[in-house]
Design a protein around this nucleic acid. Structure first.
Lengths: 136, 136
DNA sequence: TGTAGTGTGTCGGTAAACTAGTACACTTTA
DNA sequence: TAAAGTGTACTAGTTTACCGACACACTACA
């Protein structure tokens, strides 16, 4: 299984690892009861400090995603129904859009900023719509 | 002009501000010679420390995006030809895709992770393709 | 069945990075 | 020329990442 980190992005490494684990769950790559890579092997694979992996695993446990067992390992907790189907459709749609936009000359950085801003706008719209609903 | 920050994302605030400024340039909202909001007004608007704004502005200056003039302000430097047209097309395409995927039941977090991973994969593909070109 | 070795998570301390607070210095304006 | 506006610099606190040792669980062997 592939976990991806970008050490030069400025985003804290432990947050990136948390996102990767959650994504693996969402796509069905990891399921209930599965064991996560050990702290030391994940650290080696991603070239980061074991304690940083611990930090990510601790947060994931606090959020109820995994369970840490001293001396045994880190395991996926039961989650609600798999979202893999809808996630995979989104992946395919996103992949083709990204290919197209990169082909049209956008850079990865430009694309990243466009996405972040459009998503922020969509979130704001939803918040406004929810507020409007409430005041009816 | 709207700059957006998400203080709870874990991403350093100064990096987020840098991204917002670059995005404003890309979309044409800011152009050569324009003055950026002052350090204090940007800090107030975004509810962050003036020194954090300084940190972002300093990095942007180091990258050649803006120019800081002691006692006068922060100004946009000349850039290559505006990318606004291609960026706007990307914004529209991205906006409609995001609306559609959110409507299909994805959460913002899931969407963010899908995008980050598909972009990382696309980057890897391009690196591999470039390497293959070189070895010919 | 007990013990040693291996595997795996936990903990405390330190350095670097990020953020905030406050005072100083340059430029512009009235 | 003084006041207001704007960037610069220093210090302190918090967060992130790393380093090394400790403790629990599992496995193999006598």
């Amino acid at each position: 299984m592939i976990f991806r980190l970008n050490p030069s992005s400025g985003i804290p490494l432990y947050l990136q690892l948390m996102e990767q684990v959650k994504h693996a769950v969402e796509t069905g790559a990891l399921g209930e009861g599965d064991q996560l890579p050990t702290i030391r092997s994940m650290a080696e694979e991603l070239v980061m400090n074991p304690n940083t992996v611990v930090r990510a695993y601790r947060e994931l446990e606090r959020e109820g995603v995994i369970e840490l067992r001293h001396g045994s390992g880190a395991f996926l907790k039961a989650s609600s129904e798999s979202r893999a189907r809808v996630i995979r459709k989104a992946q395919m749609a996103m992949e083709s859009m990204i290919e197209r936009l990169l082909h049209q000359g956008l850079t990865e950085d430009e694309l990243r900023r466009v996405f972040a801003n459009e998503l922020a706008k969509a979130e704001e719209k939803r918040v406004v719509a929810a507020g409007t609903e409430r005041t009816r």
